[in-house]
Design a protein around this nucleic acid. Structure first.
Lengths: 195, 195
DNA sequence: TTGTAAAAGCAACAAATGTTGGATTAAAAG
DNA sequence: CTTTTAATCCAACATTTGTTGCTTTTACAA
């Protein structure tokens, strides 16, 4: 990244951070372009050089904060009585729990992103989960039909996302292990698949 | 409904239909309140007496058109080789195929609703499916844990909705019976439930 | 028929939006 | 050091939004 690109990126960061501060005070729909510009100390025409509207900015902010926060991604699975699970569940829980902790840690901003952006559109969390979770899982299970893979990914990933959104909207009050077990119950491969 | 309420309802219908016509010409985000008012031949202040923004109107329009269209709801399951399915799949297909045909018949407007409204919020299609499909299904299967029912409903219903949205965004080109089988494959109760 | 209440229309206003052309600043290249 | 290019800033403008007070029209009821 040369210095010109860095300059562009820095003002983008200023606006991302400004939006974040405003989101701590009021809901997304009540935040205007002018407020963002004042908070970020950026000219309004510069805003339009970056985005068309606050929704565009929110999408970028999601990616920005996800990247930023992922540096703090640690597993603390030993805080949960996972030894009570059977082997299959244990393996799944080992992958799921760290993600749930991550979501809970940043539940404020996650709630904003999940409820104001379409989490299921190709650029959202769906894409992340598709690449990190679904494709590898399908490869491991030897599922090859491209169309079936796509449809089933929509089903399982949006399903999982919806569970997490429900959990978030309950302010993450349900126990992580409970939510984890519900997810496992839902996504556990149906033995009749491939009949 | 008295005549005063009817008057109010009629101008609402005018705006719903105006939005529908505009949606045939351009995407929802590009439709302004003024355009709706001009198209509906309704004063702008009257718009604000009904809605806060075009999103509110779109939500009402969804309900309006769904009610209107449901009058044309017919099953034509005999157009599909469902006799090739096993008994369990046959029963499911009998319920699913008419819905898929309904969606396909009105795919234009369904695509708009699905991609611009949050189908998973409590007032959307989720609510419809919850009451018509999920609750009865849970009762039949004897599932009682309120919290589990809610989480699993989020999973299965948003999953099904996502399959349909994917289908819509492919312009409903995949065969209805194929989509139906994918849905059955996904939602078929996991035998290990209740272990 | 007459009074009243509700819905819609009308006009005016401040504020925010979206767009433009041009000035200023800073980086990249010659 | 000079030129050129890119990012930002600035100012102006038409348009849309959101809100208000008031008028007209229409439904309903005394």
């Amino acid at each position: 990244m040369n210095k010109s690109e860095a300059k562009f990126h820095n003002t983008a960061v200023k606006m991302n951070e400004a939006l974040f501060r405003l989101l701590e005070q009021k809901p997304f729909v009540d935040i205007s372009i002018m407020e963002v510009c004042n908070e970020a100390e950026v000219n309004r025409s510069t805003f339009y050089a970056h985005y068309n509207n606050t929704y565009d900015l929110l999408q970028e902010a999601r990616d920005y904060f996800m990247n930023k926060f992922f540096n703090n991604f640690h597993t603390t699975i030993n805080d949960y009585p996972v030894e009570e699970l059977n082997v299959e569940e244990f393996v799944s829980a080992k992958y799921i729990i760290p993600y749930l902790e991550f979501v809970k840690k940043y539940k404020g901003i996650f709630k904003v992103f999940m409820n104001n952006l379409n989490a299921f559109n190709p650029d959202g969390f769906y894409k992340l989960l598709l690449e990190k979770l679904w494709i590898p899982s399908c490869e491991a299970r030897g599922i090859t039909d491209k169309s079936v893979i796509t449809y089933m990914s929509k089903f399982y990933l949006s399903g999982m996302i919806s569970i997490v959104v429900e959990w978030l909207n309950n302010n993450c009050e349900d126990d992580i292990l409970f939510v984890c077990e519900v997810i496992i119950l839902c996504v556990r491969p149906n033995p009749s698949y491939g009949k």
